[in-house]
Write a protein that binds this DNA or RNA. Structure first.
Lengths: 162, 162
DNA sequence: ATTGAAAATATAGGCGA
DNA sequence: TCGCCTATATTTTCAAT
């Protein structure tokens, strides 16, 4: 396999980490300003960012949308337990979760649950409709438990690098 | 209060939604290319993006870092139940969760738990240390339950806009 | 591997329709 | 509101150290 297989750790020096911390806050920061903050020239910063993107350390550059501002004020968690861990049944469920646009995040977990989902919807009736599609319609779902988020206290995907 | 108070919904037409869907995938897409895709001029696209940022529809522009590539391969959930819902005790806990850099996401939820946390760490022993700081050291934490993510099936903060 | 300058892109703002 | 045009800023490339 190549030298940067999908899961291998990339070594980062102090400067790389400083750059990543800045970009995780605001990736529109100009290379010139980043250069000032990390005591480097702009092209040097540019090369480092390019490397971070090519090696997959930076997975994506995205705009974060406020769900409440676009009419999707309800965030909730669904904890899903499956009947059987058979691979084909697991795959079917997994694919249905990935395909649902309301599902922002889906993790396969150990413990009392098998999947943990983070979901964003316009209304509780939309959520009910979604549970019918994803859970009740799948025989392999043993049970699920819902937690409604009353406050999105802290939301992000930042990885602290020190 | 002003015309764009913090939680009010902003009306978006079809074009705004198309732009947001593009930017949620890749906010480095140039205004020129966006303009082609939505059949508008680049300056028109620019004005719309500016409005979306000023009204807070676009909350932030960030780089997404792959946790495994930077040596933090472990993602987990902590479901936390509190003893008392007293405001001051809630605030203390809430602040400690927000302050912890390992805590990527923190939601205050209804149901059997009070808080749901998404956490990213280097190792299980780092997680153990974190639980001591956040949970065992806080008398108001009744109990907590951990779910280790074996697979980050789908991870993002995108809001589907149709 | 860094610098500094030049070329190519991209963004921001003014103006008339 | 848009599209066009122009000015500014930023990113990218390249020669030289």
């Amino acid at each position: 396999m190549s030298e940067n297989s999908r899961t291998d750790e990339i070594s980062l020096d102090r400067t790389d980490k400083a750059i990543l911390n800045l970009l995780q806050r605001d990736n529109k920061t100009s290379q010139r300003k980043i250069a000032e903050q990390v005591n480097l020239s702009a092209p040097a910063v540019q090369r480092r960012i390019k490397r971070l993107e090519e090696t997959g350390v930076i997975q994506a550059n995205v705009a974060i949308v406020d769900p409440a501002k676009v009419g999707q004020p309800i965030t909730l968690f669904a904890q899903v337990a499956m009947e059987s861990e058979r691979t084909d049944l697991y795959e079917t469920a997994r694919r249905s979760f990935v395909a649902a646009p309301e599902v922002q995040q889906c993790y396969y977990v150990t413990g009392e649950a098998d999947f943990m989902l983070v979901i964003s919807v316009r209304s509780m009736s939309d959520y009910e409709a979604l549970t019918r599609r994803l859970f009740f319609q799948n025989n392999n779902v043993k049970h699920f438990r819902t937690f409604v988020a009353m406050d999105r206290v802290k939301v992000g995907l930042s990885i602290p690098l020190g």
